[in-house]
């Protein structure tokens, strides 16, 4: 990514989100570059999910514009919106797998809805996606309620990948996973990013993930956003950022990462 020209895939300008009298975002500007992993952090209630929902068109901002590859999202017709929706995959915090469908059917659902390929090919592609996210093939026949937390996350990721998206949104993918599964999930995201040329936006509180996989980090703070690499943010003087990036847990996370790099 370093030598290539930086291409902005998503552009947020002057986003204001307000619920009642409470203003959550006050003029947020954010560029998401093609091929990067962007971490989105912020305290509870700082509006991380609201911001992602704004990009996804699930929430119409009070003011401001969202451009996806040059298209103004809130102003698109439903048909144009559908075209865009096919090019992003979303992993919700609790998986949001459809409980009445098997894992394989969950993965095939976007294909059934949006493409005309044969059911045999759909089944094969679903199997490939299962393998891609590191699930055994027989997990495809299971229902979401029969899976463990880590498997649900993986299955849900496989569904997000069903239509081979350009960009992947992950809402706290490693929350609630044990450290080993969480590290494996980080590896998986890196692997997918490399092999599928994905752009990844990841909301996370997992400092290990931040250190290991994020190219840049966006901090939602004081109703606005500060973006930078880990190194840049470490130097930032804002007290919350100081607390966040210099806390004991952060130091531990960086130590592990250094040890791994050695």
């Amino acid at each position: 990514m370093s030598q290539e020209k930086i291409e902005t895939i998503i552009e947020l300008r002057g986003i204001i989100n307000q619920f009642g009298k409470q203003r959550i975002h006050d003029g947020v500007n954010l560029d998401i570059h093609r091929g990067e992993v962007l971490g989105l952090v912020g305290g509870s209630g700082s509006g991380k999910s609201v911001l992602v929902n704004t990009i996804l068109g699930l929430n119409t901002p009070w003011a401001g514009s969202v451009h996806f590859q040059g298209l103004d999202i809130p102003k698109l017709s439903p048909k144009q919106m559908l075209e865009i929706q096919k090019s992003w995959g979303v992993l919700f915090q609790h998986g949001a797998l459809f409980s009445g469908l098997t894992v394989s059917e969950n993965i095939q659902l976007p294909m059934v809805e949006h493409s005309k390929i044969s059911s045999r090919l759909m089944k094969e592609l679903a199997d490939i996606k299962l393998k891609l996210v590191g699930l055994p093939i027989d997990a495809g026949a299971k229902f979401p309620s029969e899976l463990s937390g880590g498997m649900i996350k993986r299955a849900s990721l496989a569904r997000a990948l069903a239509l081979d998206p350009l960009i992947l949104f992950l809402d706290e993918p490693t929350a609630g996973l044990d450290p080993i599964s969480a590290a494996a999930f980080d590896d998986l995201i890196l692997f997918l990013k490399e092999t599928l040329n994905l752009t990844v936006v990841i909301i996370t509180h997992d400092l290990d993930s931040l250190v290991r996989i994020c190219d840049r980090i966006a901090v939602l703070i004081d109703k606005n956003i500060i973006v930078g690499t880990m190194g840049e943010l470490m130097k930032n003087k804002h007290p919350w950022i100081q607390d966040y990036f210099h806390g004991p847990r952060m130091r531990a996370a960086q130590d592990t990462n250094k040890r791994e790099a050695l």
Binding site: K86, S115, K116, I117, S118, D164
Partner: peptide, 10 residues
């Protein structure tokens, strides 16, 4: 050779 053209390709 992408998902969008998958049915034609098939």
């Amino acid at each position: 050779w992408i998902m969008e053209n998958a049915s034609v390709l098939e």
